[in-house]
Simulated assay, not measured.
Amino acid sequence: MESDDLAQLLRTTDPATGLRAADALRRVAERVEAMHVAEARRAGWSWEQIGDALGVTRQSAHAKYGKDPHHV
Rank of each mutant, 00 (worst) to 15 (best):
M1V: 07
M1T: 04
M1A: 12
E2S: 15
E2G: 13
S3K: 11
S3N: 13
S3Q: 08
D4N: 13
D4P: 00
D5W: 11
L6D: 03
L6E: 03
L6Q: 02
Q8T: 11
L9Q: 12
L9V: 00
L10S: 01
R11Y: 06
R11A: 13
R11I: 01
R11D: 06
R11T: 09
T12C: 09
T12M: 07
T13V: 14
T13F: 15
D14I: 08
A16K: 14
A16F: 11
A16C: 04
T17V: 14
T17C: 10
T17E: 15
T17D: 12
G18H: 13
G18P: 00
G18E: 03
R20D: 10
R20A: 13
A21H: 02
A21P: 01
A22Y: 08
A22S: 05
D23H: 06
L25C: 01
R26H: 04
R27Q: 09
V28A: 14
V28D: 04
V28R: 14
A29G: 04
A29E: 13
A29P: 00
E30V: 10
E30Y: 05
E30N: 11
E30I: 05
E33G: 00
E33C: 09
A34G: 07
M35S: 11
M35F: 12
H36S: 02
V37I: 11
V37L: 04
A38T: 00
E39Q: 14
E39C: 08
E39K: 10
A40Y: 13
R42I: 01
R42F: 11
A43Y: 07
A43I: 01
A43C: 06
G44R: 09
G44V: 04
G44L: 08
G44K: 12
S46H: 06
S46Y: 08
W47P: 01
W47N: 02
E48T: 13
E48R: 15
Q49N: 02
I50C: 06
I50H: 03
I50A: 03
I50L: 05
I50N: 03
G51E: 05
D52E: 07
L54W: 04
L54C: 04
L54R: 10
L54E: 03
L54P: 01
G55Q: 05
V56K: 14
V56Q: 13
T57I: 09
T57S: 15
R58Q: 11
R58A: 14
R58K: 15
R58S: 13
S60Y: 13
S60Q: 15
A61R: 01
A61W: 05
H62C: 05
K64M: 05
K64L: 13
K64F: 08
Y65V: 05
Y65M: 02
Y65I: 04
G66F: 12
K67D: 05
K67S: 11
K67F: 14
D68Y: 09
D68K: 10
D68C: 05
P69I: 14
P69S: 13
H71T: 09
H71R: 15
H71G: 00
